[in-house]
Amino acid sequence: MTSLTDFYDAGGERKHFAEEFVQRAHSGNWEIAKDHWTRTVEHYGNSVQELEKLSKKEAREEAERLALVLCKTLAQAGKCWACKVGSRTVAV
């Protein structure tokens, strides 16, 4: 799985996502953000039936892609589906 650190180290748009996910959605807490990124990818990997038809590599990549779409959208709003930061809560 691609980690938030990997995204950050990649630079460009990937780095921007990592920064936004950590800073805006998790008030700068990298440990919580990393955990919630991992949980999001795992959630998709374990929940999306269509992934069962793919190879393990393809399923992992698709789970990451789906997680990235969700996490980017929520990070822009300063929210995370997996946590409550301050008074901001999001349910999926």
Rank of each mutant, 00 (worst) to 15 (best):
M1V: 08
T2K: 13
T2M: 12
T2H: 06
L4V: 06
T5Y: 11
T5D: 14
F7C: 08
F7H: 13
Y8R: 14
D9F: 09
A10P: 00
A10S: 13
A10Q: 09
G11A: 05
G11I: 05
G11F: 03
R14T: 05
F17R: 01
F17T: 01
F17D: 00
F17V: 04
A18S: 14
A18F: 05
E20I: 10
E20M: 14
F21E: 01
V22K: 02
Q23T: 08
Q23Y: 03
S27M: 05
S27T: 04
G28K: 09
W30F: 15
W30M: 15
E31M: 14
E31R: 15
E31C: 09
E31T: 15
I32G: 06
A33F: 12
W37K: 13
W37F: 10
T38L: 10
T38R: 15
T38Y: 10
R39A: 07
R39Y: 03
V41M: 08
H43G: 03
H43R: 15
Y44E: 05
Y44G: 01
Y44V: 02
N46R: 12
S47F: 07
V48R: 07
Q49G: 15
Q49T: 07
E50F: 03
E50M: 06
L51R: 10
K53D: 13
L54T: 01
S55R: 11
S55G: 14
K56G: 12
E58W: 04
E58N: 12
A59Q: 05
A59I: 02
E62S: 08
E62L: 12
A63G: 00
L66A: 09
L66R: 15
A67D: 04
L70D: 06
K72T: 11
T73V: 04
L74A: 11
A75R: 02
A75L: 03
Q76D: 04
Q76N: 07
A77F: 03
G78L: 04
G78W: 04
K79T: 08
K79S: 11
K79Y: 07
K79P: 00
W81F: 09
A82C: 03
A82W: 12
C83G: 08
K84T: 15
G86I: 08
S87N: 06
V90D: 01
A91Y: 08
A91E: 10
